[in-house]
Amino acid sequence: MVGLGGTIAMTANASGAVEPRLSAQDLIDAVPGLLGLDVELEARTVRNRPGASLTFGDLHELAEVLAEEFAAGATGAVVTQGTDTIEETSYLLGLLHAGEQPVVVTGAMRNPTLAGADGPANLLAAVTVAASPDARGLGCVVVFSDEIHAAARVRKSHTMSTGTFVSPDGGPLGYLVEGRARIINRPARGFTLPAGSRTGAEARVALYTATLGDDGGLLPSIIDQVDGLVIAGFGVGHVPESWVGHLETAARRIPVVLTSRTGAGSVATRTYGFPGSEQDLLSRGLIPAGFLSPYKARVLLRLLLSTGLGQDELRAAFVTAGALGIYPMGVC
């Protein structure tokens, strides 16, 4: 079990507000039910930060820690962290982990000072899933409120509810039932970063969301400062007509990925044909992200750019990761 901080690890400071202070071992010690599991549990605290302050560097370091532990014989891992960024961090960890061992990410919505704090129950459930043979091969999952979600699907849907994590496209992979992990929805293993392909180069990737009345005038200044761009379009992947020229120019220089801001469903590829529609944008060089949310598409694009892959390989990766399956698969 690796602790990164977050609400699950928070206690009150002198003013009464909470901040992350508890170690991974502190969290384990607060859950007596863990003693009833046939699990040898090792605790490590890698960071103690709010979820909003985690960085790509933190996650790459965590991935290296997990790889070392798996090489030493660990059969699964649990990561505790703040919920603000779980839908992104869990996806990043899944992209970097190609092994059979489950990586389970969890946290809490109610800090330990509150009545009904959910951290202990979530931690017990997460360890149960990580130790389950049925979870092998699932990659990285998020376990919350006795539900098991694929990292590629999960999103945070509510600011305060303990049931905040949902998977709009496909639903949970399974549930905790009477202390056991029950997997009822096992998808094909998703895309993982090719082994040994990371160069260490850091890419800057922007996310720009379509909104009513935005003429796109800010796009040129953003495009000039980034190595990649993700567009969160309206509906199935539409933008205002005034954006089209800017995005076509951008796509000649950098990868521009088209997603939807709606929160569920795939971008279209061959339905609408007006200027600014998905067909129009794809014909101008944009890359469709399929079912990937804008946040996950940004994580994937940043990792892919760090490998130095070409445009054809980038497209092939998004075909696989976004479950498109309508273009040649290429090398990925």
Rank of each mutant, 00 (worst) to 15 (best):
residue 2 V to H: 11
residue 6 G to E: 05
residue 6 G to S: 09
residue 10 M to L: 06
residue 11 T to H: 03
residue 15 S to P: 00
residue 16 G to N: 11
residue 19 E to P: 00
residue 19 E to A: 13
residue 21 R to W: 00
residue 21 R to A: 15
residue 22 L to S: 12
residue 23 S to I: 04
residue 23 S to P: 01
residue 29 D to K: 10
residue 29 D to I: 00
residue 31 V to E: 13
residue 34 L to R: 06
residue 37 L to M: 09
residue 39 V to P: 12
residue 41 L to V: 15
residue 43 A to H: 08
residue 47 R to F: 00
residue 48 N to H: 11
residue 48 N to C: 15
residue 51 G to V: 12
residue 54 L to V: 09
residue 57 G to H: 02
residue 63 A to M: 09
residue 65 V to I: 13
residue 67 A to E: 15
residue 67 A to Q: 13
residue 68 E to T: 14
residue 72 A to K: 15
residue 73 G to Y: 03
residue 74 A to I: 08
residue 75 T to E: 15
residue 79 V to S: 02
residue 80 T to P: 02
residue 81 Q to S: 13
residue 81 Q to A: 12
residue 82 G to H: 06
residue 86 I to L: 14
residue 87 E to L: 03
residue 88 E to K: 09
residue 89 T to I: 14
residue 92 L to S: 07
residue 97 H to C: 06
residue 100 E to M: 08
residue 102 P to H: 09
residue 102 P to D: 10
residue 103 V to D: 06
residue 104 V to A: 08
residue 105 V to N: 11
residue 109 M to T: 02
residue 109 M to G: 00
residue 110 R to W: 08
residue 112 P to Q: 05
residue 112 P to S: 12
residue 115 A to M: 12
residue 116 G to F: 07
residue 118 D to V: 07
residue 121 A to W: 01
residue 123 L to K: 04
residue 124 L to E: 05
residue 125 A to G: 12
residue 126 A to D: 03
residue 130 A to Q: 07
residue 131 A to Q: 07
residue 132 S to K: 05
residue 135 A to Y: 11
residue 136 R to G: 10
residue 141 V to W: 01
residue 145 S to E: 15
residue 148 I to N: 02
residue 149 H to A: 02
residue 149 H to W: 05
residue 149 H to R: 04
residue 150 A to Y: 00
residue 152 A to G: 03
residue 156 K to M: 08
residue 164 T to H: 01
residue 165 F to D: 02
residue 166 V to N: 02
residue 167 S to R: 01
residue 176 L to M: 15
residue 181 A to K: 03
residue 187 P to T: 03
residue 192 T to M: 06
residue 193 L to N: 05
residue 195 A to M: 10
residue 195 A to H: 11
residue 195 A to D: 15
residue 195 A to G: 05
residue 196 G to R: 10
residue 199 T to M: 08
residue 199 T to N: 06
residue 199 T to H: 01
residue 202 E to G: 03
residue 206 A to L: 12
residue 211 T to K: 11
residue 212 L to I: 13
residue 213 G to H: 08
residue 214 D to S: 13
residue 215 D to A: 14
residue 218 L to F: 08
residue 221 S to L: 14
residue 221 S to A: 15
residue 221 S to C: 00
residue 228 G to T: 11
residue 230 V to G: 10
residue 231 I to A: 09
residue 233 G to H: 04
residue 233 G to R: 01
residue 238 H to L: 01
residue 239 V to T: 04
residue 239 V to I: 13
residue 241 E to L: 05
residue 243 W to C: 07
residue 243 W to E: 07
residue 253 R to F: 07
residue 254 I to C: 05
residue 255 P to K: 11
residue 255 P to G: 07
residue 256 V to A: 02
residue 256 V to E: 01
residue 259 T to E: 10
residue 266 S to E: 13
residue 268 A to P: 00
residue 268 A to G: 14
residue 270 R to I: 11
residue 272 Y to V: 01
residue 272 Y to G: 01
residue 272 Y to A: 12
residue 273 G to Y: 03
residue 275 P to C: 07
residue 277 S to W: 08
residue 278 E to M: 07
residue 281 L to N: 07
residue 281 L to G: 03
residue 283 S to Q: 09
residue 283 S to W: 00
residue 286 L to P: 02
residue 289 A to I: 00
residue 291 F to V: 13
residue 291 F to N: 14
residue 299 V to L: 09
residue 304 L to A: 07
residue 304 L to S: 06
residue 308 G to V: 04
residue 316 A to S: 15
residue 319 V to P: 00
residue 322 G to D: 07
residue 323 A to S: 13
